[in-house]
C-alpha cells in the first residue's frame, strides 16, 4: 500500500511545513547569529510558527522547528514552555491578552476582565465556542500610563473603558480573521527586515 508521505508514520498526524515566505524569513533570521549558533533564532521562529499554524504550537510544529534549527526536540519544548507568549494548546483566532499587573490593576483591569468574560460568555483561559476569542490575562505590558489596556496581536488597545473595549472586540469579531503577534502580512512582505 502506498504511504502518504505528508503524514507521519509514527503519530499519523500531518507533517507541518512553513510557507515559502516564512521559511525564507526563518533562514534570514538564523543568519543573524554567529555560525553554529542558529538555535538563537528559536524565539523569533516560534513566533513565526504561531502565526503560520493557527496561533499555537503543536508537538508537530515544535518538532519541525527543531529540525529547522538542527536541535533536539526537547530543546524546543523547554523553550516554548518557558515563555508566556507561546500557546501550547489550541486557541481562538484572536487571543485577548489583558494586562493584570500593578498600574493596570489599580486602574480597573480586574473589572475589565470580568466585563470581557461576561460579554464573551467565557472565563479567563477559555475559548469561545465559535473559536473566535481566547481570553488570557498577562503580566505588565509596559503600557501603564494608558491603563487599563489589552493586547490583541501586535496591537495595544489602551485607555480602555467597557464601551471602548466592547467596540474593539466587535470589530475583531466582524473581521473574523486570525490575529497573531507576528502579523501574517509582515511574514509575507519582510523586505523591511534586513539581510
Amino acid at each position: 500500500m502506498q504511504q502518504d508521505s505528508s503524514v507521519s508514520k509514527y503519530s499519523g498526524k500531518k507533517h507541518v511545513k512553513f510557507s515559502d515566505e516564512a521559511l525564507a524569513l526563518a533562514h534570514k533570521i538564523m543568519k543573524r547569529y554567529p555560525e553554529g549558533k542558529q538555535k538563537s533564532a528559536i524565539l523569533p521562529i516560534l513566533h513565526i510558527a504561531q502565526a503560520e499554524f493557527e496561533g499555537w504550537l503543536s508537538v508537530e510544529t515544535m518538532d519541525y522547528v527543531a529540525t529547522l534549527l538542527k536541535i533536539q526536540s526537547i530543546e524546543v519544548y523547554e523553550v516554548a514552555s518557558f515563555y508566556s507568549m507561546f500557546n501550547l494548546k489550541p486557541v481562538g483566532k484572536c487571543v485577548i491578552e489583558v494586562c493584570r499587573t500593578g498600574p493596570c490593576w489599580l486602574m480597573g483591569a480586574e473589572d475589565l476582565v470580568r466585563f470581557i468574560e461576561k460579554k464573551l460568555g467565557i472565563k479567563e483561559g477559555q475559548t469561545t465556542p465559535d473559536g473566535m476569542f481566547t481570553l488570557k490575562t498577562v503580566e505588565c505590558l509596559a503600557s501603564c500610563g494608558t491603563a487599563p489596556m489589552m493586547q490583541i496581536g501586535e496591537t495595544y488597545h489602551e485607555n480602555l473603558t467597557f464601551e471602548k473595549c466592547g467596540a474593539v472586540l466587535d470589530e475583531y469579531k466582524n473581521k473574523g480573521e486570525q490575529v497573531s503577534h507576528w502579523r501574517k502580512e509582515r511574514i509575507k512582505h519582510h523586505s523591511d527586515i534586513h539581510r
Partner: peptide
Amino acid sequence: PGRVHGVVNRGDVAEISTYIQH
C-alpha cells in the same frame, strides 16, 4: 548522545519531563 528529557514550564510549576511520552 541525545537528550530527550529536560525542564519544561517555569517557576514553581517547572518540571523534569520529556514533554510528550518519550
